[in-house]
Lab assay of single mutants.
Amino acid sequence: DEETLERIAKELKEKGWTLIVNGKLITDAREALKWLLEEEERR
């Protein structure tokens, strides 16, 4: 759910983690959240 996604995005940002999505590096939590939401919609 959205709360979980926001928590994940926040944790990613705090830890300075990066996500690699389709070979693209995502360092911004907002971008990561946007991607996660798009993935949820596809299901």
Rank of each mutant, 00 (worst) to 15 (best):
D1W: 15
D1Q: 06
D1S: 05
D1P: 09
D1N: 10
D1G: 12
D1A: 13
D1Y: 15
D1R: 11
D1K: 07
D1L: 15
E2A: 10
E2M: 14
E2Y: 13
E2L: 11
E2R: 09
E2H: 09
E2W: 15
E2I: 10
E2P: 10
E2N: 07
E3D: 13
E3Y: 11
E3V: 14
E3S: 11
E3L: 13
E3A: 14
E3W: 13
E3R: 10
E3N: 11
E3H: 09
E3K: 12
E3C: 15
T4Q: 06
T4I: 13
T4P: 03
T4N: 05
T4D: 09
T4M: 14
T4W: 15
T4F: 13
T4L: 14
T4V: 11
L5S: 03
L5K: 03
L5D: 02
L5N: 03
L5A: 03
L5H: 01
L5G: 02
L5Q: 02
E6A: 12
E6Y: 05
E6K: 11
E6Q: 08
E6W: 08
E6F: 05
E6R: 11
R7H: 06
R7G: 04
R7K: 09
R7V: 04
R7N: 05
R7P: 01
R7I: 05
R7F: 05
R7M: 07
R7A: 08
R7E: 04
I8T: 01
I8Q: 01
I8E: 02
I8V: 02
I8S: 02
I8R: 13
I8A: 05
I8L: 10
I8P: 00
I8F: 04
A9H: 04
A9W: 14
A9L: 14
A9D: 03
A9P: 01
A9S: 07
A9F: 15
A9I: 14
A9Y: 14
K10W: 01
K10A: 07
K10I: 06
K10Q: 10
K10V: 06
K10F: 01
K10N: 11
K10M: 06
K10L: 07
E11C: 15
E11Y: 14
E11K: 13
E11M: 12
E11S: 10
E11H: 12
E11L: 15
E11G: 05
E11A: 14
E11Q: 12
E11F: 13
E11D: 08
L12E: 01
L12I: 10
L12H: 03
L12Y: 04
L12C: 14
L12K: 01
L12R: 01
L12D: 03
K13Y: 10
K13C: 15
K13V: 13
K13S: 11
K13R: 10
K13M: 14
K13F: 14
K13Q: 11
K13D: 05
E14P: 00
E14A: 04
E14S: 03
E14D: 13
E14C: 14
E14G: 03
E14W: 05
E14K: 05
E14R: 03
E14M: 02
E14Y: 01
E14N: 06
K15L: 12
K15H: 12
K15E: 10
K15Q: 07
K15P: 11
K15G: 15
K15M: 09
G16M: 11
G16R: 09
G16Q: 08
G16A: 09
G16V: 12
G16K: 06
G16N: 10
G16D: 07
G16P: 00
G16Y: 12
W17F: 13
W17N: 03
W17Q: 02
W17Y: 08
W17S: 02
W17P: 05
W17V: 07
W17L: 11
W17G: 11
W17E: 02
W17T: 02
W17A: 02
T18G: 12
T18E: 12
T18K: 04
T18P: 12
T18S: 10
T18C: 15
T18F: 14
T18Q: 11
T18L: 15
T18I: 14
T18R: 06
T18W: 13
L19F: 08
L19D: 07
L19K: 05
L19Y: 01
L19R: 02
L19A: 04
L19T: 07
L19S: 08
L19H: 02
L19M: 07
L19W: 11
I20F: 07
I20G: 00
I20Y: 04
I20E: 02
I20M: 06
I20V: 09
I20Q: 01
I20N: 02
I20C: 15
I20A: 01
V21S: 05
V21H: 01
V21D: 01
V21E: 01
N22W: 13
N22F: 14
N22L: 14
N22A: 11
N22K: 04
N22G: 07
N22C: 15
N22V: 15
N22R: 02
N22D: 11
G23M: 07
G23P: 04
G23E: 06
G23Y: 07
G23I: 14
G23H: 00
G23W: 10
K24M: 09
K24E: 06
K24D: 03
K24I: 13
K24C: 13
K24W: 12
K24G: 04
K24A: 11
L25A: 03
L25M: 08
L25T: 06
L25R: 01
L25S: 03
L25P: 07
I26S: 02
I26V: 08
I26E: 00
I26G: 01
I26R: 00
T27A: 08
T27Y: 11
T27N: 07
T27V: 12
T27K: 09
T27E: 09
T27P: 02
T27R: 12
T27F: 13
T27D: 08
T27L: 12
T27M: 08
D28Y: 02
D28P: 01
D28E: 06
D28H: 03
D28W: 15
D28R: 13
D28C: 15
D28Q: 04
A29K: 02
A29V: 14
A29W: 14
A29Y: 12
A29Q: 02
A29N: 01
A29C: 15
R30V: 12
R30L: 13
R30N: 10
R30F: 14
R30T: 09
R30Y: 14
R30I: 15
R30K: 11
E31F: 02
E31G: 03
E31R: 10
E31T: 02
E31W: 08
E31D: 06
E31I: 07
E31Q: 08
E31N: 10
E31P: 00
E31S: 06
A32F: 15
A32Y: 13
A32I: 14
A32W: 13
A32H: 01
A32V: 12
A32P: 00
A32C: 14
A32N: 00
L33P: 00
L33W: 04
L33D: 00
L33E: 00
L33T: 00
L33I: 06
L33V: 03
L33S: 00
L33G: 00
L33A: 07
L33N: 00
K34S: 07
K34M: 08
K34H: 03
K34Q: 11
K34F: 06
K34L: 11
K34R: 11
K34I: 08
W35G: 02
W35D: 03
W35H: 10
W35R: 13
W35Y: 08
W35K: 06
W35V: 08
W35P: 00
W35Q: 04
L36A: 00
L36I: 05
L36Y: 06
L36S: 00
L36T: 00
L36M: 04
L37M: 07
L37I: 08
L37D: 02
L37R: 06
L37E: 05
L37N: 03
L37H: 03
L37S: 04
E38F: 11
E38I: 06
E38V: 05
E38K: 07
E38S: 05
E38W: 10
E38N: 04
E38Y: 10
E38A: 09
E38C: 15
E39M: 13
E39D: 09
E39Y: 14
E39Q: 09
E39T: 06
E39P: 02
E39S: 04
E39R: 04
E39A: 07
E40T: 09
E40S: 12
E40G: 06
E40M: 12
E40D: 07
E40H: 14
E40C: 15
E40V: 14
E40Q: 09
E41K: 11
E41C: 14
E41P: 05
E41R: 11
E41H: 08
E41N: 10
E41M: 11
E41Y: 08
E41L: 13
E41I: 13
R42F: 07
R42V: 04
R42D: 06
R42Y: 03
R42C: 13
R42S: 07
R42A: 04
R42K: 08
R42N: 04
R42P: 03
R42W: 05
R42H: 05
R43E: 05
R43A: 09
R43P: 06
R43C: 15
R43K: 10
R43T: 06
R43L: 10
R43G: 04
R43S: 10
R43Q: 09
R43V: 07
R43W: 13
R43F: 10
R43I: 11
R43M: 08
